[in-house]
């Protein structure tokens, strides 16, 4: 039996079983099956909360505070070129060898600069940098596997945030062809670029519009990341970097 027929058989069984399953729920609730959308008077967060909105400056301050409280590092930068300098500096100082970054258009200046750094360091014979750009376009399964392998070896992963939330101190990272999930997960250190105009106050401002995203455009994974990977499982003693990146830098870019 091949994979397709196996799955088709499971799905067929599931569709039979589901009617029994839903009917059972309705009968336990002592009413017929609910086939139309129930009326809702309450939805989402309390209405007062929806009016909570901070100014841009206050959002930035709050994000930095909460991100740092969670153990992350935050940098306020005037322009993308400052981010480029900071990253180049980090690479030189940490002696990072393997870098991986998404192929998102907003990261283009960083990509160009890092390629330059790579050449410079090679010339200086100091560091041999391996830079992987995550773009799965037209790749076969084997090549895709190599991208994941590169992420698993990477010292630093670089990604741009779709949005950020100041109240929870979170960055929002959806997956796509040019934005791998493993880039923000497997490297030892993670750098997230946040253009400040994408910084919201509340989680709801990011989540609510996502309800409306068309099916075909919904990413397979949307990850809300709020600091370094952590655990308190050994005697409640906080440990950083258990499975995900232990060092996370948020770079807030203030130019429009």
């Amino acid at each position: 039996m091949n994979d397709k027929t196996f799955l088709a058989e499971l799905d067929a069984q599931s569709r039979v079983k589901q009617e029994e399953f839903f009917d059972h729920i309705a009968s336990r609730l002592q009413r017929p099956r609910q086939k139309t959308a129930p009326i809702r008077t309450l939805k989402g967060a309390p209405e007062d909360w929806d009016r909570y909105e901070l100014s841009l400056e206050a959002r930035i301050t709050q994000f930095v505070k909460h991100w740092e409280l969670a153990g992350g590092h935050a940098h306020r930068l005037a322009a993308m070129k400052d981010a480029v300098l900071l990253i180049q500096d980090m690479v030189r100082h940490t002696g990072a060898k393997h870098l991986i970054m998404q192929d998102q258009p907003e990261l283009e200046p960083i990509q160009t600069a890092l390629l330059r750094t790579k050449e410079e360091l090679q010339r200086e014979e100091q560091q041999d940098i391996n830079l992987t750009i995550w773009n799965a376009h037209g790749l076969d399964d084997a090549a895709k596997g190599w991208l994941v392998a590169a992420a698993a070896q990477a010292d630093i992963g670089i990604t741009a945030a779709h949005a950020a939330v100041s109240y929870t101190g979170s960055v929002v990272l959806p997956s796509s062809e040019i934005s791998g999930r493993t880039v923000s997960l497997l490297p030892t250190m993670l750098i997230v670029i946040i253009p400040v105009l994408r910084l919201k106050t509340r989680l709801g401002e990011v989540l609510r519009p996502m309800d409306e995203w068309p099916l075909a455009e919904r990413p397979a994974g949307i990850h809300f990341v709020s600091g370094p990977s952590r655990s308190a499982d050994i005697e409640n003693d906080l440990t950083i970097g258990v499975h995900g990146p232990g060092i996370v830098h948020a770079l807030l870019i203030e130019e429009a």
């Binding site: 969670a70 995550w134 799965a136 376009h137 790749l139 895709k144 991208l147 994941v148 979170s170 997956s175 796509s176 062809e177 791998g180 996502m210 919904r218 990413p219 397979a220 994974g221 949307i222 990850h223 809300f224 990341v225 709020s226 600091g227 370094p228 990977s229 952590r230 995900g244």
Partner: peptide, 15 residues
């Protein structure tokens, strides 16, 4: 630290 909203397996284009 992580809240993941997962909708189905990888898309055809994803790596």
């Amino acid at each position: 630290v992580y809240m993941s909203v997962l909708s189905g397996p990888r898309r055809a284009a994803d790596a």
